[in-house]
Amino acid sequence: MSVAKKEYKRVTVKSLVEMKANGEKISMLTAYDYTMAKIVDNAGIDVILVGDSASNVMAGHETTLPITLDQMIYHASSVVRGIDRCLVVVDLPFGSYQSDPKEALRSAIRIMKESGGHSIKLEGGKEIKESIKRILNAGIPVMGHLGLTPQSIYKFGTYTVRAKEEEEAEKLMEDALLLERLGCFALVLEKVPAKLAQKVAEALTIPVIGIGAGGGVDGQVLVTHDMLGMTHEFNPRFLRRYLDLYTEMTGAFEQYITDVKSRDFPSNKEQY
């Protein structure tokens, strides 16, 4: 069923709650630099996530753990300069909020002041409750993240689907309700069973955005480099590739090399 879209000059945290109430699905993609952010924003995306996935996509690390707060601020500030309409959410990186609520607040304040981002995202539920409360009390909007939480990969030992067992599913629901009560404006659910994700979305008044969480949630998020086919080693079930840029870019580079070697480039029209 199609839903009439409300046109937003600027998307805010309030806009997302309205979208859920109106039955309009929320679109969310990652960006880590000015150029990509400008293209994604101009296309009409609702939310850009400056994800700690930059650790993998931009820096080549195996996990999201190595990226630093300074690096996240650099990426986020680059993105903010490229957007006019969408809401920008910035991940708090591993180690910047888990152990000390005061440190969590300092990290969130740095992101907001130094990058110009509109909100922050952090992973976890009850165990980081005090950090979330302190950040929210400072007036900083918070997006939660439950299910597969990549910053805890060494605890889980695998990137497999989470909350398939009843005990973990119950904890996830409890954590989701807690995040809403605390005042989070939205929640990301990553790699959880579709039925559970839909149940969570129906239980909450705040939007639930899924990645590998089925179609019963309030919106979807993908890593832009994955959905454009710039990466080709990563093939989870939830990923739809809208382009095959890896192949197209490789072909363009090979053609450029050929043109340079053969002296075809630059032509007379391409010089002064």
Results as ranks from 00 to 15, higher is better:
Cys184Trp: 11
Lys113Leu: 11
Thr64Asn: 02
Leu239Thr: 12
Lys113Asn: 15
Ala43Gln: 11
Ser15Pro: 04
Ile140His: 02
Val50His: 10
Val57Met: 12
Ile128Ser: 07
Ile26Cys: 09
Glu18Val: 03
Ser15Phe: 08
Leu29Phe: 07
Val80Arg: 12
Gln271Tyr: 09
Leu136Lys: 02
Pro236Asn: 10
Cys184Thr: 12
Gly215Thr: 14
Leu92Asp: 00
Leu146Cys: 08
Met1Asp: 15
Leu136His: 02
Leu177Asn: 01
Gln98Asp: 02
Met1Phe: 13
Gly44Met: 04
Val260Gln: 08
Thr63Ala: 02
Lys9Gly: 07
Glu165Gly: 12
Lys129Ser: 10
Ile120Asn: 03
Gly23Val: 14
His61Arg: 04
Leu172Cys: 14
Ser55Cys: 11
Gly251Lys: 15
Glu174Phe: 01
Phe185Arg: 09
Glu7Cys: 14
Val50Ala: 01
Leu243Gly: 04
Ala213Glu: 15
Thr224Trp: 06
Ser107Thr: 02
Arg237Gln: 15
Ile48Cys: 00
Glu165Gln: 15
Val223Cys: 05
Arg240Gly: 00
Gly116Asn: 02
Ile206Tyr: 05
Val142Met: 10
Gly144Pro: 03
Ile128Tyr: 01
Arg181Asn: 14
Thr35Gly: 10
Ile206Phe: 06
Glu24Gln: 09
Lys171Ala: 03
Leu69Arg: 04
Ile111Arg: 01
Leu92Gly: 00
Ser77Gly: 02
Tyr97Leu: 02
Tyr246Thr: 06
Asp46Trp: 06
Val57Cys: 05
Gly183Gln: 03
Gly117Trp: 00
His145Met: 06
Ile26Ala: 13
Cys184Ile: 12
Pro193Arg: 12
Pro193Gln: 11
Gly51Ala: 08
Leu179Thr: 06
Gly117Thr: 01
His61Lys: 07
Ser2Val: 13
Lys14Ser: 12
Asp70Gln: 11
His145Thr: 06
Leu29Gln: 06
Met112Gly: 07
Val142Phe: 14
Leu69Ile: 11
Lys133Gln: 15
Ile132Met: 05
Lys199Thr: 15
Lys191Glu: 01
Gly139Ala: 08
Thr68Gln: 00
Ser78Lys: 12
Glu270Thr: 00
Lys5Met: 14
Tyr8Phe: 15
Asp264Cys: 08
Asp259Asn: 06
